[in-house]
């Protein structure tokens, strides 16, 4: 395989891990909620994009629509269910598990086991006799952009400030006048919107079915576990490292070892640095400040 071939594989894996994990990471990192319906949120996004494109809306607008609508859907779910479970992390496991069952089967009942897919746009690029999908290169760019957006939202907006405060200490934030429930709601909505975006982005490259989200589930959990609670630093670093491990193992031994490698790295990381990469980085930063 050529050097560019490997770089391409790496970009592809990196984008997949980042985009799969980001919605989960935001919700887990900021709210401590393990959202087992994450895969179904992605699936919903994929359906919206596919159906909208089939109805004649341009693909990229459909994808934006996915993010928007799944965000709104997330907000509704939060108001109806999740908001009742703030601070009861593990109860939310049961609730989101229930939600995921309802969504997957509901989609099957409404649209049947599969819908017609949209082809991957933008064609391919030929370098040195090898074909590379332009759309997949774009996905890498979008993954980086998504991280940029998260940086901006959490570091440069009032919501970001309040949500970081809430994450550090909900009680103190509340006593300082932050409406923490509102912050949680918006966070959940943001996480859902990112999941919807991911679904929309991958809809043209994969089979769209009620089990669409399952493809992302394992990778997203591993990325979040390795990354730790900070959705920006954690996801970025773990996407980077895991993407490399996965691409290298894929290339040398094949798909199965790529998958196994991800899981084993995750176990080692939790054992050595339970708070994940973001915990490690934050510790270093704190030490720097103290000195």
């Amino acid at each position: 395989m050529s050097i560019f071939g490997f770089i391409y594989q790496y970009m592809d894996n990196f984008a997949f891990l980042i985009l799969a994990a980001i919605g989960l990471a935001v919700i887990f990192g900021m709210m401590g909620i393990i959202n087992l319906a994450h895969g179904e949120f992605i699936m919903l996004g994929a359906y919206i994009t596919t159906l909208a494109t089939m109805a004649g809306i341009p693909l990229f607008i459909s994808i934006a629509l996915s993010a928007l609508l799944v965000g709104i859907y997330g907000f509704i779910i939060d108001r109806l269910i999740i908001s009742k479970l703030y601070g009861r992390t593990l109860d939310s496991v049961v609730a989101t598990w229930g939600i995921s069952m309802i969504m997957a089967q509901g989609m099957l009942i409404i649209f049947g086991p599969s819908i017609q897919g949209v082809g991957t746009p933008l064609g391919s690029l030929s370098i040195g006799g090898e074909n590379y999908s332009v759309y997949r290169i774009l996905l890498f760019v979008i993954a980086i952009a998504v991280l940029g957006v998260i940086y901006w939202v959490f570091m440069h907006t009032k919501f970001g400030l309040q949500s970081r405060a809430t994450m550090q200490s909900q009680e103190i934030a509340r006593s300082l006048g932050v409406n923490t429930n509102k912050v949680y709601s918006l966070t959940f909505m943001l996480g859902a919107a990112f999941a919807g975006l991911t679904g929309g982005l991958y809809a043209p490259t994969m089979a769209v079915s009620p089990s669409f989200g399952n493809s992302f589930l394992m990778q997203s959990f591993v990325t979040v576990i390795v990354g730790g609670s900070n959705p920006l630093i954690g996801t970025f670093l773990s996407g980077g490292v895991l993407g490399f491990v996965n691409s290298a193992l894929n290339m040398i031994w094949g798909t199965f070892y790529g998958r196994l490698g991800l899981l084993i790295v995750a176990i080692i990381v939790i054992r050595l640095i339970p708070l994940g990469f973001s915990g490690l980085v934050e510790k270093k930063l704190m030490r720097g400040r103290d000195a």
Binding site: I81, K84, L85, R88, D91, V94, A95, W97, G98, I99, S100, M101, I102, A104, Q105, G106, L108, I109
Partner: peptide, 20 residues
């Protein structure tokens, strides 16, 4: 019934919501 899993899911959500 194709509603089996929907009902099961709904049941769990209701339980956790109303009798935590």
């Amino acid at each position: 019934s194709e509603y089996a899993l929907v009902i099961l899911g709904l049941g769990l959500v209701l339980v956790i919501l109303f009798v935590p």
